[in-house]
């Protein structure tokens, strides 16, 4: 089986960059990235939304509480990205197949997006500061608490952002736009200094 290649391969090299790069000060921003083992979008219709949510909850053992709350456990994360629209990331590699078996075509649509996004993770005290440079969403803990997720954009680059911990965010970026987004992000992060894991 051929290897998957991420658009950021070879660009995100372990090390310390930007301000304080060559100094012995702890980085206030750590950046890493990953491809998704499985990423699937499930779209329901108004009369089938209830059933689809039930199926998703059963399959992932997560509880969907509504609004922009994005629940997660060790193996699954569900990100609600619109009315009747759910983005699911999973550690198993055949999520699309599994869900297609459980959600018939007149109940909902199952769309494989495992190659359509890559995930950049920002963590550290300066994560919110750097994110706020490019995205017009209030990421303060009060307005964007743990497990919040938002579908937004940076210029024409669509992004889905989720808070996974106190100072930690997952950013889902379109694969074809990943390098362009990274070009902005590394400059924005350079001001505060960052470390790549």
């Amino acid at each position: 089986m051929a290897d998957r290649i991420s658009p950021l391969q070879g660009l995100l090299i372990k090390g310390r960059y930007g301000k304080h790069a060559d100094m012995d000060i702890a980085s206030e921003l750590v950046i890493s990235h990953r491809m998704c083992t499985s990423l699937v979008q499930v779209n329901a219709w108004p009369d089938t939304d209830g059933k689809v949510r039930a199926t998703l909850q059963r399959s992932t053992e997560l509880k969907l509480v509504g609004g922009s709350k994005s629940p997660a456990n060790k193996d699954y994360t569900i990100l609600p990205v619109g009315p009747g629209r759910y983005l699911i990331e999973a550690e198993i590699d055949d999520l699309e197949l599994q869900l297609r078996k459980r959600i018939v075509s007149d109940q909902g649509a199952v769309i494989g997006l495992s190659h359509a996004r890559i995930v950049i993770t920002l963590s550290g005290a300066k994560a919110t500061w750097v994110l706020s440079k490019g995205i017009a969403v209030d990421f303060s803990p009060g307005d964007f608490p743990l497990c919040s997720c938002v579908a937004t954009s940076h210029h024409d680059i669509g992004l889905t952002i989720r808070r996974t911990d106190d100072d930690r965010f997952d950013i889902f970026v379109f694969t074809s736009l990943a390098r362009s987004f990274w070009q902005w992000l590394e400059k924005a992060a350079g001001e505060v200094g960052y470390e790549i894991e």
């Binding site: 219709w45 108004p46 509504g66 609004g67 609600p80 619109g82 009315p83 009747g84």
Partner: peptide, 13 residues
């Protein structure tokens, strides 16, 4: 106000 299939259901998702 909302538009689209889900708007008949009313409020936010």
């Amino acid at each position: 106000g909302p538009l689209g299939p889900f708007s008949k259901n009313g409020a936010k998702a």
